[in-house]
């Protein structure tokens, strides 16, 4: 309890005084500047004035950002800054948390996702998600991959389908192989597709979760610190995979690890305490020449 109030106070002092930035501009001017940040490519996701509260606490404050397609966008910032909350707004997983209230707009390909008649099934098919710690289902590897398409009725493999000879088993095998290959896991597990997925190592489990996510042909893949629970070797495999995925998918990744963000992302957005998006731009620019002094402090390790 007391900790949150403390954070809130700290935020207030941080926002009340317009901090001097490196080039002598006020924070407001910096924000104006990066708002005009132009990237190559089409806008895939756009958030506008997005506010999220948990009860009385702000988790996100007036976040506006446009994310280009087929690239990797990293969201970095200290813990509790709202970057994960923002990520979960993009496929409405925040709906699961009853106390969370979302205000503002998020559009995917220009279509608003915070409106009454949005089909959550369709939204989450298009915007897949990979979680912080690997969460395979307690089923076989094959069933894990086929789960989404089966539930969406795109694959018929149930008992009834088999009885009626309508089973899509060949399609399922192709799908399983394609997704596992895309997730760079096929070579390791092709002989044991019927084994329980919980028997895989942590890194393999996470790649399985990525493969599972690919099975419904998403357009966007959200990743919430996907490598934070893994060892360095597994992490580097996941990082390579992310870079490959960015050729076909729009990847948005939350990470604690600034080196990781610098290595793999094309754009970087920096959130600071209080749920504010403080800076957004090309990764090289954000890391080498940040416009905001607070971001520079954070990146060089003075703050956060």
């Amino acid at each position: 309890m007391s900790e949150t109030t403390e954070t809130a106070e700290r935020t207030e002092t941080a926002t009340d005084q317009p901090l001097e930035t490196t080039s002598g501009e006020t924070e407001e001017q910096v924000r104006e500047e990066w708002r005009e940040y132009v990237f190559d490519g089409r806008t895939k996701l756009a958030a506008e004035d997005l506010d999220v509260y948990y009860g009385d606490d702000y988790a996100l404050k007036k976040v506006s950002i446009e994310i280009p397609e087929e690239s990797v966008t990293a969201l970095i910032g200290p813990s509790g800054c709202g970057k994960s909350t923002f990520l979960r707004c993009l496929n409405r997983m925040n709906d699961r948390i009853r106390s969370a209230e979302v205000d503002g707009s998020v559009r995917i390909d220009g279509q608003e996702i915070y409106q009454e008649s949005v089909n959550l099934v369709e939204l989450r098919k298009r915007v897949g998600m990979v979680f912080q710690s690997p969460n395979p289902f307690p089923k076989s590897i094959r069933e894990n991959i086929a789960y989404g398409p089966e539930k969406h009725g795109d694959l018929q493999t149930g008992l009834l389908a088999r009885l009626l000879d309508r089973s899509d088993e060949d399609e399922r095998e192709q799908l399983v192989e394609r997704c596992l290959r895309d997730a760079a896991l096929w070579d390791e597990v092709q002989d044991r597709l019927d084994d329980n997925a919980l028997g895989l190592s942590g890194g393999q489990q996470q790649r399985l979760c990525i493969a599972r996510c690919l099975s419904v042909d998403p357009e966007v893949i959200l990743m919430d610190e996907p490598a934070s629970a893994l060892d360095p070797i597994a992490t580097s495999k996941i990082e390579d995979l992310i870079e490959e995925l960015a050729e076909d998918y729009t990847v948005v990744i939350v990470t604690h690890n600034m080196q990781q963000a610098a290595r793999i992302s094309d754009q970087t957005a920096v959130f600071l305490t209080g749920g504010e998006l403080v800076e957004y731009g090309d990764t090289d620019q954000v890391f080498e020449d940040p416009r905001s002094e607070r971001v520079e402090d954070y990146i060089t390790g003075k703050f956060g």
Partner: peptide, 9 residues
């Protein structure tokens, strides 16, 4: 994928 449906958002 067999008969993938592209529904409306």
């Amino acid at each position: 994928m067999a008969g993938a449906t592209e529904g409306d958002l």
